[in-house]
Design a binder for these strands. Structure first.
Length: 517
RNA sequence: GGCGCUAUCGUCUAGGGGUUAGGACGGAAGAUUCUCAAUCUUCAAACACGGGUUCGAUUCCCGUUAGCGCUACCA
């Protein structure tokens, strides 16, 4: 045995995220990226992004863009970037090496006809007997004659021959060579398969740790075989438990809808740091009951030992179900005021929502305000940064998603309040007459008071006392008149931001509504 | 079918030969309060099943069951 071509580097780890650009970036991929990234950053290693685009049929530029877009939003960077399609020569070289060593053979069976032959007597297909044992001379002859062939790995299947590796998460893994099929290295068009390309690149890029989804655990035996056949020491492996839907199946866009796409979370108003936090808690634990963590805290706490072995459910509501319930939703003025109707946030995992709310509250008012500005302006409202800065503290404890600001603070942005039921103006244990009385008095009082918290508080409470109503009965009609709904931020702060003119105008409108009702 | 991986509250998880099996989300109740939210307190909620090993298994071993993955000239 000669020395491996890639002697173990005693330096820093090199990890990679290697998506195949055949769809949008979904949450499972994002988590794989994050775990790799955390490992790299934690150990001062190198993060590599490699597009595994050997499947020309299914690759799309849109997918590549989706991946970049998603990663950009997450704010996670990488240090090196490669595309497998640029490295075909390297892949074929490795195939040639393996072939020269006699550890691969040409399979002249026409493509796509394998199925019938595969379902043979044993019901199991491991290799094509005629091809595996073809003499070198005949093989060369047929190849020289221009016959096309796929190159297959000659899996050692002597009795008792085992393939083994140690997985950082799943422990010692052993499988009999006899149970591994002769997988393809090169397709009949000469293109490398995933297994070959992946291993060739991992070896060439000197990847030290392969951290990827558990769906590759069984493939790893093949990879170990490839590495060894080509003379390389296999890297360390760490397989991640899969993310599954509430129904237990693997996440898929077709089955589960947009909740599996990273951009859905971005567009709904998740903070990237909260989303990352959420994903990390799926299949990994810091083991100290800590849940709310910043990016840096995650980096500091991360280790492969904390990774679980069982699949984790992303507890979202099935989109089919969600959309059915959401269907009857008409153009109701403010969703927040209609608790009976489901909001889009109901589709997300409650824990993700909670974490997002926590991260939102952890932001400075300035920071949150800026992020909210983007959303609010994007929705077509015009607000000044100065006003947004005053609104932010009033809603920051009332929103779970950035987009919630649109419904939680709509009355600050709207010139004219959207329609509301005049009945809402009627206070608890009161009637329309009381509402009217309260609003008329409020109009007088507010016309002559400074719009600052304390004066507002004092004058309105005094007015309530004069009228012989409870403070709550005084505030509620005003709140509804001014916000268009019962549930809203604290009244005095709200009035302060709204200003005297708007407040008075809305109260007048409310009085008119009441009078005509 | 074959091979493999996995199994603690509804969900994410901690734990581990002897524990009141811990935390979080979500749920329920209460406190607070100008509504809502936030906050605080309390409550309900789990070791898949069957065999071993052992003085003692939720924990270790075997099996069953279930779920998932791989079984492509996809990745």
């Amino acid at each position: 045995m000669s020395e491996p071509l890639n002697p173990p580097s005693h330096g820093k780890p090199r990890v990679r995220f290697a998506p195949s650009p055949t769809g949008f970036l979904h949450v499972g991929s994002a988590r794989t990226f994050i775990f790799n990234w955390l490992y790299a950053r934690r150990n001062h290693g190198t993060m590599i992004l490699r597009l595994d685009d050997t499947d020309v049929e299914r690759n799309t530029d849109a997918s590549v863009n989706s991946i970049f877009e998603g990663l950009k939003w997450l704010g996670l960077s990488w240090d090196e970037e490669y595309r497998q399609s640029d490295r075909g020569t390297l892949h074929r070289q490795m195939a040639e090496t393996i072939f020269q060593k006699g550890m691969a053979y040409r399979d002249f069976t026409p493509a796509h006809t394998g199925d019938s032959e595969r379902s043979g007597a044993q019901g199991t297909w491991l290799f094509n007997p005629g091809m595996r044992e073809l003499s070198q001379a005949e093989s060369d002859l047929r190849a020289a004659a221009g016959e096309t062939f796929a190159l297959r790995f000659r899996v050692p299947r002597d009795a008792g021959r085992m393939v083994r590796f140690t997985d950082a998460v799943y422990g010692e893994q052993v499988k009999a060579g006899a149970d591994i099929e002769d997988f393809a290295l090169l397709r009949s068009d000469g293109m490398p398969t995933y297994h070959l390309a992946s291993c060739a690149d991992d070896a060439d890029l000197r990847i030290s740790h392969i951290i990827r989804g558990q769906d590759h655990l069984s493939n790893t035996y093949k990879h170990v075989l490839i590495f060894e056949a080509a003379g390389f020491a296999p890297p360390q492996f760490a397989h991640l438990p899969l993310l599954v839907a509430p129904d237990g199946t693997k996440l898929s866009k077709r089955r589960h809808g947009p909740v599996v796409s990273v951009t859905t979370y971005r567009d709904a108003g998740f903070l990237p740091e909260a989303f990352i936090n959420f994903l990390c808690l799926l299949g990994w634990s810091p083991k100290n009951d800590r849940e709310l963590m910043s990016r840096q805290e995650l980096v500091d706490a991360f280790s492969l030992e904390g990774i679980n072995r069982s699949n984790a459910v992303v507890n979202f509501k099935e989109s089919a179900e969600a959309s059915t319930v959401a269907a009857p939703k008409s153009d109701v003025p403010s969703a927040a005021g209609n608790p009976g109707l489901p909001s889009p946030e109901e589709m997300f995992d409650p824990k993700a929502l909670w974490l997002n709310a926590e991260h939102i509250r952890g932001l400075s008012v300035e920071d949150l305000s800026q992020r909210l500005m983007t959303i609010v302006q994007g929705a077509g409202f015009s607000v000044t940064a100065e006003k947004m800065l005053r609104i932010t503290p009033l809603i920051r404890e009332r929103i779970k998603l950035l987009r919630d600001a649109l419904t939680a603070a709509d009355f600050f942005f709207l010139k004219e309040l959207s329609l509301y039921d005049p009945g809402e103006l009627v206070p608890q244990k009161g009637d329309a007459a009381m509402a009217l009385k309260v609003l008329q008095r409020a109009k007088e009082v507010l016309a002559n008071v400074e719009f600052k918290h304390d004066p507002l508080d004092q004058s309105l409470r005094a007015a309530a006392q004069e009228l012989g109503v409870k403070a709550g009965q005084m505030f509620q009609p005003i709140r509804v008149a001014v916000c268009g709904r019962k549930n809203a931020p604290p009244l005095f702060e709200t009035l302060e931001v709204l200003g005297k003119e708007t407040t008075l105008h809305r109260i007048e409108e409310a009085i008119a509504k009441l009078a005509s009702a």
